[in-house]
């Protein structure tokens, strides 16, 4: 390459490459491509995949995972993690069922109380992490066990299942004229809210700053601990919303509802390109990853792949998700280095 293409200071501060170039070669693009390939191959080879019923089922299964993955993405971007979410779902289900059993019959009140409970459970995590300065991994492994235990205290072995049929039917009702569950619209609206929060607000800017360097964020006037506290509250509330949906979708509140769901959520977030070390990733990839994992799992089930093999596939994808974005980034770095414009002012690494 000719050296006369070196950018002079007068020409600096140009916008980056066009959007399509940035998307091309990004992990998001890899995921969307993988999603298309899986859909096309599975539809052509596995009977039942690609039918409206199939997608309806995938959507119903993905809704609770996606609801929790939205705030979890933000939490992991700040370099923290919340493993107590599935237990929060379980405890919310149990309390919701017990309240109904004890005679609370107002649906709005039940939903409100559930969301409040979720927020409080998230706040408990938040207090341990931000006030006492404990690592979120340890704290939320603890509350994972604690909240599940409390769910058993509330319901024991009972299942509360006698909700009005309109509630349970409405929870899974399709958008008129389609087979898509209307709750997908709720999810879509929340995804937009979280997306705007992450990409286009001062709070979103602080989340990336915190995840990359909490000390420098503090020096820049970001309330690191307060921000993290409210993220855990939001995660608890969203897990509670997933609990409400779970209860009415299955018409059953049990203490063991959603056991193990936290792994599905974390797997989707990591596969979505969010760095487990914080500071990198976004919601587009995470939503694509939730869809990819849901379609893959259901397609393989239809193909009579045994459950053990399904676990292996999910595990392999999780490993790939940690390695993949790094490989993509290394490839892009190499491309960048070959372009003269960015070789200016490179400092020792």
């Amino acid at each position: 390459m000719a050296t006369d293409t070196l950018v002079t200071p007068a020409r600096t501060a140009k916008a980056g490459p066009p959007a399509w170039r940035r998307l091309f070669g990004s992990w998001d693009a890899v995921l969307i491509l993988a999603l298309l390939v899986v859909v096309l191959v599975a539809s052509a080879t596995i009977e039942g995949v690609g039918s409206p019923r199939f997608y309806r089922f995938v959507a119903l299964e993905a809704i609770p995972i996606a609801l929790i993955a939205l705030p979890m993405t933000l939490v992991i971007i700040t370099g923290e993690i919340d493993l107590s979410v599935a237990s929060t779902v379980g405890l919310t289900c149990s309390v919701l069922g017990q309240l109904w059993y004890l005679g609370v019959t107002s649906l709005p009140l039940l939903i409100l109380l559930s969301l409040l409970l979720g927020a409080v459970l998230g706040a408990v995590n938040g207090v341990f992490i931000t006030v006492f300065g404990l690592p979120s991994l340890a704290v939320t492994i603890g509350t994972l066990a604690l909240y599940r235990g409390l769910a058993y205290v509330v319901l024991g072995d009972r299942a509360i299942a006698d909700y009005p049929p309109t509630w349970t039917q409405n929870a899974v009702a399709p958008i008129p004229g389609t087979v898509i569950p209307w709750f997908v619209l709720v999810l879509a609206a929340l995804a937009v809210v979280f997306g705007v929060l992450l990409y286009a607000t001062p709070i979103g800017r602080s989340l990336y700053a915190i995840g990359n360097n909490a000390e420098a964020s503090n020096f820049a006037g970001i309330s690191v601990l307060r921000t993290k506290f409210w993220l855990f509250v939001a995660t608890g509330a969203m897990a509670a919303l997933a609990g409400v949906f779970w209860t009415f979708r299955f018409a059953s509140a049990r203490a063991d509802n959603a056991t193990g769901l936290e792994l599905a959520v974390v797997a989707a977030v990591l596969l979505g390109g969010v760095s487990i070390f914080g500071g990198r990733g976004g919601l587009v990839g995470v939503i694509a990853a939730v869809a990819l994992l849901g379609i893959l799992r259901n397609a393989l089930q239809l193909a009579d792949v045994p459950a053990n093999a399904l676990t292996i596939v999910t595990g392999t994808l999780l490993i790939l998700s940690v390695v993949g974005p790094n490989l993509v980034r290394m490839a892009r770095e190499r491309l960048r280095r070959r372009r003269p414009a960015t070789t200016l002012e490179r400092k020792p690494s």
Partner: peptide
Amino acid sequence: VKAARNTDPVSTLS
């Protein structure tokens, strides 16, 4: 500030 682009990470600067 001498930089190729303002969207470059600050780690690439002197």
